[in-house]
Amino acid sequence: MHALYMVLIDPFVQMVSAPDLFVQTIWEGLVAGVLYALIALGFVLIFKASGVFNFAQGMMVVFAGLTLIAFQDMGLPAIAALAASLAVMYLLALSIERVVLRPLVNQPDIILFMATFGITYILIGFGEMIFGGEPREVNTKAFFLPQGSFEIPILGGFVQIQKIDVAAAVIAALMIAALGFFFQKTRIGRALRAVADSHKAALSVGISLNQIWVIVWFAAGIVALVAGIMWGARSNVSFALQVVALKALPVLILGGFTSIPGAIIGGLIIGVGEKLGEFYWGPLMGGGIESWLAYFIALGFLLFRPQGLFGDKIIERI
């Protein structure tokens, strides 16, 4: 009886008795969710356009972040470092398309998935060789990112908000808007959507698959770079981030592999659910439940919608 009370009722009593803490937890969840969503966004872009489940996305975030930091350390001004990192990401996209994707065209999905594992390994090896294994910090001042925090009085208490988190949310929103514009209004965006719909049909109207893949991997690289900067500004960039990137996977299955809004909303749901679960129910189970809670939340949703919240409806034929 007592155990049931502790699990089912006590957390809610706590929520009501300290509403400001509740709001603070939700805010932190939203912030974590934005970062998960940024990583998931890169996955979705690539999965939509090429059907590749890109396991390397998390590593690309680390790699992009470390590249930027390395360029800054060489004394380049922020804009030049940014441009140089973008160039590196473009080269990466180009070489992945040339070396990995082109020879593997038309192979089963699982083979391409495996190939992105190979890419991950290579990126880890190269990254550690060039940048070293230690965590590095992004120079936030150079990017005019605000620092410090402010407090909002709310419900008889106050909520502390880091300025950098607000900036992250704004930048994420801007980037999603930009991506939406790019997909809906530009020529290349239309080509991307065509490829996402059907490779064969796109080929038959003269869209170059190879070109589209380079573009889409480059777009994922840009998203990775932004995610790397935002993450680096909050704490620091290290190879351990790769594990955090695994959190983007439940976000993906929750939102659906092919949906950009799904990635965003999935990210927010996972972020908030995870923080609430950890804060209110975690102590009952000995803590650290963050590591698997996200997967169970996603599983719960999946049992009702096997294609994710916003994924394309699965139609099966014989």
């Binding site: 299955i253 650290g288 698997w292 996603a298 049992l303 994710g308």
Partner: peptide
């Protein structure tokens, strides 16, 4: 059990739930 309803890469990610949950059990 979820494999009856979930397929492909969705299932692959769902099995990660087993990985992380069991690993948590081994420690906690």
């Amino acid at each position: 059990i979820p494999s009856l309803r979930i397929k492909g890469f969705y299932l692959a990610v769902a099995t990660l739930a087993a990985q992380f949950f069991l690993q948590w059990c081994f420690v906690r």
